[in-house]
C-alpha cells in the first residue's frame, strides 16, 4: 500500500550550500540536545527532559520547507523542531532554566516552548492536544485567505488519542492547509507502538479520513524534505491536508533517566548505525562536497555557539515574584 520514501544515494537533493545549511541545522540540534542533558544533570532545570537525539532529520526536513509565518504545534519533545523553525537557542536554554529571558519568562518550561514570531504556537504536555490546535491555525489561514500552512508534529502514541481522529476528520471535510507529521519512533512512551496499534503503518489511519498519506525514512533528511515539500505545496494550493509518517528512532529513553527496559542495547546500536546526521554527513563526503575537516570545524563552531547560548541562559535573571500573577488571562 505504501512505499517508503528515500532519497537518491547518488546525488544531493539540494545545492551544495543548501545541503551544508541543512547539515548545520542537524548538528545544532544534536549539540543542543547533548548540552541539555548536561543541563539536566547539573540540576539547573526542573521536571523531565525529553530528548530528540536520533530524530533530528524529521524536524529539519519538514521545517526547512516552511516559511517563517507558517504555523507549528509540537509535543514536549520539541526543541528540535523549534531550532529547525528558527528559534533562538539562547531563549530555549533560558526557558529550560526557568529564567526571565526564556521564551515564556520561565513560566512555561521545556514542555511549553512558544514563539509566536516564528509561528511556533506552543509545545504541549498532552501528546495529541496540539493536533486540533494546528488544524485551527490552518482554519484561520484558509479563512483569512493567506497562503500560510500549519504543521503539527506528534508521536506514534498520539495517534491513539481521540483528538487525533477528530482533527483529521475536520481537516479533511474542510480541506484545511495542514500537514500532520507523525514521528514514529517505535515507542509510545515506554511501550512498543506495535503492541498498541494493529496497523503496520500509522499512515493507514489517515486514509480512513481520505487524507493523502506517505511514509518516509525519517532518518533520511532529504527524503523528509521531499515529502514535506510536496505536502506543504498541496496545502498552500488549497489541496487540503497531508499525513506524513516518518519512520525514525528515539536513540535515548522517553525521558532522561528512563531505564529503557522495553528494548535491547543491540536494537539501539543497530539504529545508531542509521544515525540521520551520520548518514547525511557521509553522503556529502562520499559525493565529494565536503571533507571530514570541514565537518569537524563546523561541529566545533556550533559547539561554541551552543556553549555561548548556555552561558547566556546561565547569566539570565530569575523572574520577579510579581510575574506569578501576570499573563493568567
Amino acid at each position: 500500500m505504501f512505499n517508503l520514501e528515500v532519497s537518491d544515494p547518488a546525488k544531493l537533493l539540494f545545492s551544495k550550500d543548501d545541503s551544508l545549511r541543512i547539515l548545520e541545522q542537524l548538528i545544532t540540534i544534536r549539540k543542543f540536545e547533548e548540552k541539555s542533558i548536561e543541563l539536566y544533570k547539573s540540576g539547573l532545570m526542573g521536571g523531565s527532559l525529553h530528548g530528540y537525539i536520533g530524530q533530528e532529520a524529521v524536524a529539519v526536513g519538514v521545517c526547512s520547507q516552511l516559511n517563517k509565518d507558517d504555523y507549528l504545534t509540537v509535543t514536549y519533545r520539541s526543541r528540535g523542531q523549534a531550532i529547525a523553525k528558527g528559534a533562538s537557542i539562547e531563549k530555549l536554554f533560558a526557558e529550560m532554566m526557568g529564567k526571565v529571558d526564556g521564551y515564556c519568562k520561565g513560566k512555561g518550561g521545556p514542555m511549553h516552548i512558544t514563539d509566536l514570531e516564528i509561528g511556533f504556537l506552543g509545545a504541549n504536555g498532552i501528546v495529541g492536544a496540539g493536533i486540533p490546535i494546528a488544524t485551527g491555525a490552518a482554519f484561520s489561514a484558509k479563512k483569512k485567505g493567506t497562503s500560510q500552512v500549519s504543521v503539527t508534529f506528534f508521536g506514534d502514541g498520539a495517534t491513539n488519542q481521540g483528538v487525533f481522529h477528530e482533527a483529521l476528520n475536520l481537516a479533511s471535510i474542510w480541506k484545511l492547509p495542514v500537514v500532520f507529521v507523525c514521528e514514529n519512533n517505535l515507542y509510545s512512551e515506554m511501550s512498543p507502538i506495535a503492541d498498541m496499534v494493529p496497523n503496520e503503518h500509522l499512515a493507514e489511519r489517515a486514509l480512513a479520513y481520505h487524507i493523502p498519506a506517505v511514509i518516509v525514512d525519517g532518518n533520511d533528511v532529504e527524503a523528509v524534505c521531499k515529502v514535506a515539500q510536496e505536502a506543504i505545496e498541496r496545502a498552500r494550493n488549497n489541496g487540503g491536508p497531508t499525513f506524513i509518517e516518518a519512520k525514525t528512532y528515539r536513540q535515548q529513553g522517553h525521558m532522561f533517566g528512563d531505564a529503557e527496559t522495553y528494548r535491547t542495547k543491540e536494537e539501539v546500536n543497530e539504529w545508531k548505525k542509521k544515525d540521520p546526521i551520520q548518514l547525511f554527513t557521509n553522503k556529502q563526503i562520499e559525493l565529494g562536497y565536503i571533507t571530514d575537516e570541514l565537518v569537524e570545524q563546523l561541529s566545533h563552531e556550533i559547539e561554541l555557539k551552543v556553549e555561548k547560548a548556555y552561558q547566556f541562559a546561565l547569566n539570565s535573571e530569575q523572574p520577579n515574584y510579581d510575574e506569578i500573577f501576570t499573563d493568567v488571562f
Binding site: 504555523y71 504545534t73 504556537l121 506552543g122 492536544a129 493536533i131 486540533p132 490546535i133 494546528a134 488544524t135 485551527g136 491555525a137 490552518a138 482554519f139 484561520s140 489561514a141 479563512k143 483569512k144 500549519s150 481521540g162 483528538v163 481522529h165 477528530e166 482533527a167 476528520n169 475536520l170 471535510i173
Partner: peptide, 21 residues
Amino acid sequence: DTPISESGFIGLGIGAAMTGL
C-alpha cells in the same frame, strides 16, 4: 456546522483564536 467532535472543534477554535480569529 461541525461533526460531533467536541474536543476536535474546540481545539480547532483554540488554534483559530490564537491566530487572529
